[in-house]
Amino acid sequence: MSTLSPEPVKPLLDGSLKNENEKKREIVRVSGLKKSFGSLEVLKGIDLSVREGEVVVIVGPSGTGKSTLLRCINLLTEPDAGHVWVDGAEITARGADVNKIRAKTGMVFQEFNLFNHLTALNNVAIGLKVVKKIPEEEARRRAMEELERVGLSSKASSYPAELSGGQKQRVAIARALAMDPRVMLFDEPTSALDPELIGEVLEVMKKLASEGMTMLVVSHEMGFAKEVADRIVFMEGGLIVEEGPPDVMFSAPKKARTKEFLGKIGAIHGGTVVA
């Protein structure tokens, strides 16, 4: 993957285009994002920027607001304060065409959330038909291509209940990819899977990353993070504690808390390091 500076990427506006990476388009930008549920403040002011082709892995303890952050980026959860831009369009702007901007982000959920009443093929085709208004034949053809991309064209006519967890998640990835998103959001895509099924999903994600897809991934698969991530973001208590490239984050983090957490998580969710 590309080499990124250890510093968090600076906002586009400050004009300091030092290296190649900073010239790349900003696909997601989050600024001053806050969200509370009742009296519980879950996000306390998040600033984050993801550039084209970047793979950012978000880690952090349970209940820290990682899922909430992802859900705010496509407005499945409405933030209380702050702004979110996706591919240049502000989804949090008043009067923004939320459905249209949402279609630019693909989301993959921990529990797959495949549409139970549709075959694998139709799960992938439905967004094309309903949202993009693509005619039936064409939609099915493109859906088949997406299934091939995740290696599941042979399961096109199976219903979700007839698929393994790993296959479900791969169909879910194909479903999101079919919409031709500018960024893919993954919320713990492998944590509901039996250990022997995790690999096939990570393989698909690695392939996506190598094809240049911009990805924001909440995951504790440290092997994947070390191998694929351009940047690791460590969140705790509704704030970003530290972020940086994997080698720096793992070997020389600035904050003691980062070191402690990544050490612990690496011991549980380690994996082969190919970095």
Binding site: L76, N99, G106, F115, I126, G127, V131
Partner: peptide, 20 residues
């Protein structure tokens, strides 16, 4: 999660109700 997945694809609530 079914509604969330439908909306994440860009469906409006009404479209999600109708199709999902």
């Amino acid at each position: 999660g079914q509604m969330a997945a439908a909306q994440a694809l860009g469906m409006s609530r009404l479209q999600a109700i109708r199709h999902i």
